[in-house]
Amino acid sequence: MTEKKRGKALNLGESRILIAGAASLVGSHTADLLLEAGAREVILLDNFAFGSMDAIAHLVGNPRIKVLRADLMRLPDLLAATENVDGVVHLAAYMTLGFAQTPWQAVDVNIRGAQNMLEACRVNKVGKVVFASSNAVYGYGSGIHGALVENGPFHSEGAPPAAILYGVSKIMGEQLCRQYHQKHGLDYVVLRYSTVYGERQHYRAANSLYIMETYDRVKKGERPLLPGDGKDTKHFVHVSDVARANVAALGSTATDIAVNVSGPEPITTGELVKLVLDYCKSDLQPEVKPDPPDTVRLTSGGAFHIPHELAGREIGWQPEVRMKEGVERLLAWREAQEAG
């Protein structure tokens, strides 16, 4: 067997790292962890169309933090931002709901925006790129079952167009990374996130939004809604585990590879609702109410799971936060926000 080529491992203590899409759930937690790892400087790049200063307010004023307003669609912005940068974590993207609402902008940002960032990294000889992809690259619909391993096919039968468009945009982003590696030697690692949730949660996701919607209903004394029989499968990963994966990828010698970043185990919708009810100490009973036809829900239906063993071998990562702990941490944060 041919030994896999290894790439550049960044010494974080000597590195300047840029996070694109930094004013976000994943971006802010990744910045926290990079500072803990001793990064020389962390550049928080965002155009603040969706990102919020609230997510990074605790970082402002840190001498090793630089906040930069810039746009992925403007290559000159990215060329200036990546000058003398050692590594880039590319998070900036539209999610599935964006593809349902504003598909033109979503296609531009997720594909041309990624290409612009890679071109800026090529020009400025950035050492390593971590590209945030998604388990959406496996598609959706009735054809999904078993283990969704990294070399698996794409499924689209019966899935909403927005979900398919999002998945395809991530496939194209991954392949642009491969092309820049093959043609220009740019080292990269693709991380295929499952649905990310956790403290500093926003209301723009699909599955993670369901946690917040359920909590909001229960706190108002309303029965939580189940879109089906409660047995459909959801795949989550806590944001702290995702941040660790981003940092591990930067510090590893892995390159030219895509790995799953998933939680310890899948969960059903019924189990998820019960976690929220238990946290709220509520005896409300769920109400079965199917989603309208145009509702976007991800990674639902089918007996499948998303293994992460390859990430363990390639970047030395595995998840730590189980779903019960993660939901409790998220809802405790939410309560603190309400109290504050």
Rank of each mutant, 00 (worst) to 15 (best):
140 Y>W: 13
299 T>S: 13
58 H>N: 13
316 G>S: 12
183 K>Q: 15
157 E>C: 13
140 Y>H: 15
219 K>P: 00
142 S>P: 09
120 A>Q: 02
76 P>G: 06
207 N>R: 05
176 L>W: 12
189 V>R: 07
16 R>G: 03
324 K>W: 03
66 K>H: 11
297 R>I: 09
339 A>K: 15
15 S>N: 08
194 S>A: 14
171 I>G: 07
278 D>E: 09
224 P>H: 07
320 E>F: 05
118 L>N: 11
333 W>D: 13
282 S>T: 01
274 K>Q: 11
22 A>G: 14
113 G>V: 12
118 L>M: 11
35 L>G: 09
82 T>H: 01
28 S>G: 08
266 P>I: 14
139 G>H: 10
191 L>C: 12
157 E>I: 14
212 M>Y: 08
152 G>N: 04
218 V>H: 00
147 A>V: 03
273 V>C: 02
23 A>I: 06
283 D>N: 04
123 V>G: 10
333 W>L: 09
55 A>R: 15
199 E>T: 12
207 N>S: 13
9 A>W: 04
112 R>H: 13
153 P>K: 05
20 A>S: 15
284 L>Q: 08
149 V>P: 01
198 G>Y: 01
63 P>H: 00
231 K>V: 03
94 Y>H: 11
213 E>K: 09
96 T>D: 05
6 R>T: 10
163 A>C: 05
326 G>T: 10
185 G>W: 05
101 Q>P: 09
233 T>G: 10
184 H>V: 07
48 F>K: 13
235 H>G: 10
13 G>H: 14
281 K>S: 01
304 F>G: 08
230 G>W: 01
259 V>C: 08
19 I>V: 11
273 V>W: 01
246 N>K: 00
56 I>L: 05
334 R>M: 14
169 S>C: 00
300 S>F: 10
14 E>V: 11
324 K>L: 05
209 L>W: 12
310 L>R: 13
194 S>Q: 04
144 I>G: 06
217 R>A: 01
162 A>S: 08
171 I>C: 10
